[in-house]
């Protein structure tokens, strides 16, 4: 039996006023922000048609679809073979795209790093162009590259490369800006030029960080590579989109399962490699 201790709340409040009230202005501000966010959410849901019955009807249909997806079944072995080949293609796309992006991003990152590039205008311009590349989604890049090199996985590689140059450029330049400037100063003071300063004063320090970021992105790019097939840029996405559109839902769930397993495997391997590179305690910012 829980017994309640009688508490004279009013007396406690009088004795410790600062534990009650709090800052009234801040509390009112937080409350106003919360209400505004909720109102905007309800307005948005109404605007997007959540409240006119379509949502409820769709839920029923969604349940039906989910029911049709189990058990995952590829149909026959010929399908399994095709899916496996395109899964390998997907991983290959991700690997090539990530690596080429990493190689191309290093010089750009040096340009965009404040401590290396002292010319303000150059630094500003390279930052902005990296931002521009980053704000265009990978699928848009895929469509543009398809127009250039045609349908197929190569367009996918180029799409991942382009969108990752933006990501890597930003992350790498931040890593470069965070290095200790003393090694570089030391090298320059012994008469080494700017290039030697970067090679021996900056690269040894940032290399493990960059490598771990590349490994991290390899995993997320495998995920991206599974969807660029939807617009025709190679990989397993093509088969997945086709299976969903033709309502071969058991095949679709089989492909999704394959993707999940592949991503989990790559995640494990890249995590092991990352820990080997930077030690278990260091975490990616």
């Amino acid at each position: 039996m829980v017994s309640r201790i009688p508490v004279d709340t009013a007396a406690v409040r009088a004795r410790h006023p600062h534990h009650f009230g709090g800052s009234d202005r801040r509390r009112r501000f937080t409350l106003a922000m919360g209400v505004a966010a909720a109102v905007l959410l309800l307005y948005g849901m109404a605007q997007l048609g959540f409240f006119d019955g379509k949502f409820i009807a769709g839920l029923g249909k969604l349940g039906e679809i989910a029911g049709l997806m189990v058990p995952p079944n590829p149909g026959d072995w010929a399908h399994v073979r095709i899916y496996l080949m395109s899964l390998i293609e997907t991983v290959a796309i991700a690997l090539l795209g990530t690596l080429t992006a990493a190689v191309l991003a290093v010089p750009l990152a040096l340009l965009a790093a404040k401590n290396v590039t002292t010319a303000r205008i150059l630094h500003f311009l390279s930052r902005r162009s990296l931002d521009t590349i980053r704000s265009v989604d990978i699928l848009i890049w895929a469509l543009i590259w398809i127009n250039v090199v045609g349908l197929g996985p190569f367009a996918g590689v180029l799409a991942i490369m382009t969108s990752d140059i933006g990501n890597f450029g930003k992350l790498f330049s931040e890593a470069i800006e965070a290095v200790d400037r003393k090694p570089r100063e030391g090298i320059i003071s012994t008469g080494g030029g700017a290039i030697l300063g970067v090679r021996f004063g900056i690269l040894p320090e940032v290399f493990p960080v960059l490598a771990s970021q590349v490994l991290y992105f390899f995993e997320s790019n495998t995920r991206s590579a599974t969807i660029i097939g939807i617009v025709g840029a190679g990989g397993i996405g093509l088969h997945l989109a086709e299976a969903i559109r033709t309502l071969e839902l058991q095949q679709a769930s089989f492909i999704i399962l394959m993707i999940l397993i592949a991503v989990a495997a790559i995640d494990m391997v890249s995590n092991q490699l990352r820990f080997a590179l930077i030690g278990r305690r260091a975490r990616l910012a």
Partner: peptide, 27 residues
């Protein structure tokens, strides 16, 4: 894990079938 590993676009493809074409599937 399941929700974040399956790409958004794959969910969108399935929701388009269930909820019809339009922004609701995307949301």
């Amino acid at each position: 894990e399941l929700c974040r590993t399956v790409p958004e676009l794959v969910f969108a493809l399935m929701f388009v079938i269930a909820f019809g074409l339009g922004p609701m599937a995307g949301v």
